[in-house]
Simulated assay, not measured.
Amino acid sequence: MAVQISPSILSADFARLAEAAAAVPNADWLHVDVMDNHFVPNLTLGLPVVESLLRATSTPLDCHLMIEDPDRWAPAYAEAGAGSVTIHAEASKAPVRTLRQIRAAGARSGFALNPATPVEPYEDLLGEIDMLLLMTVEPGFGGQKFLDVVLPKIRRARALIDKHGGQVWLQVDGGVSDQTIERCAEAGADVFVAGNAVYGAEDPARAVDALRARAEKA
């Protein structure tokens, strides 16, 4: 799988999201963290902002729903035009139905696991998803330190994906930087969410190129 970089606008200036999107024309995706202050202890943005951002950029949106009722809301993000919509295993009560609705609406279906959630119980769902997201911090806030404890889980997830044909992208989210991205890539990840490492840099586009180079080197 080719390396893909998905800068997280959670680390951008919310008053200048269109400019933040334009600052990384070399990104594969724009990662949009939707938080509801229930599933995670933070409140960010929702569908109206996503719809506005879709009109402001041609970069596909990678919408990560950290919300209490993703089964209700996820299809709407796909219908609005998001390129990828990810729901959490810990929040979804009907994941197969919701993942299929996301695909039916034209988006890639993503399935996310928190650091302490094992990947093995969800092996049978690999055929329903286009991307598996492993959180490498506890979800809710940007700028957290990368959790090395997740690295063995990345390796196990890569082995399961390869066992089933290797068509599922493996994304990591949280604390991804020039100090950690190579370890993630070596473990088997191929899609990398980076917030502060991109939008905290003087030149976000150059930061994207540097991250990509490090991951490809691994």
Score class of each variant (00 low, 15 high):
1 M>N: 10
2 A>V: 13
8 S>T: 07
9 I>H: 00
12 A>P: 02
12 A>G: 00
22 A>L: 04
22 A>D: 02
22 A>N: 07
31 H>M: 08
31 H>C: 04
31 H>Y: 04
41 P>A: 15
43 L>R: 02
44 T>Y: 04
49 V>Q: 12
50 V>A: 12
51 E>S: 03
53 L>V: 04
54 L>V: 03
54 L>T: 06
56 A>C: 07
58 S>W: 00
59 T>D: 07
61 L>Q: 09
63 C>R: 01
64 H>V: 14
67 I>D: 11
67 I>G: 05
68 E>G: 08
69 D>I: 05
70 P>L: 02
71 D>Q: 03
73 W>Q: 15
76 A>T: 11
77 Y>R: 07
78 A>S: 11
80 A>D: 10
86 T>K: 10
94 A>H: 11
94 A>P: 01
96 V>A: 10
97 R>N: 07
98 T>H: 04
99 L>Q: 00
99 L>I: 00
101 Q>M: 15
103 R>D: 12
111 F>T: 14
114 N>C: 14
115 P>S: 14
116 A>T: 06
118 P>N: 09
118 P>T: 08
120 E>T: 12
123 E>A: 13
124 D>L: 10
129 I>E: 13
129 I>C: 05
134 L>E: 05
137 V>P: 01
138 E>A: 08
138 E>V: 12
139 P>E: 06
140 G>C: 08
142 G>K: 03
143 G>D: 03
144 Q>K: 06
145 K>V: 13
149 V>N: 15
157 A>I: 09
159 A>G: 10
159 A>R: 13
162 D>Q: 04
165 G>T: 03
165 G>S: 01
168 V>S: 12
169 W>S: 11
169 W>V: 08
169 W>R: 13
170 L>P: 10
170 L>H: 11
172 V>M: 07
172 V>C: 00
173 D>I: 08
174 G>P: 06
176 V>N: 06
178 D>E: 13
179 Q>F: 13
181 I>A: 14
182 E>L: 05
183 R>L: 15
184 C>R: 04
185 A>S: 14
188 G>M: 09
189 A>K: 09
190 D>A: 10
191 V>W: 02
194 A>P: 00
197 A>C: 11
198 V>C: 15
204 P>H: 04
205 A>E: 03
206 R>K: 10
207 A>Y: 03
209 D>E: 13
210 A>D: 15
216 E>G: 09
217 K>E: 11
217 K>P: 15
218 A>N: 11
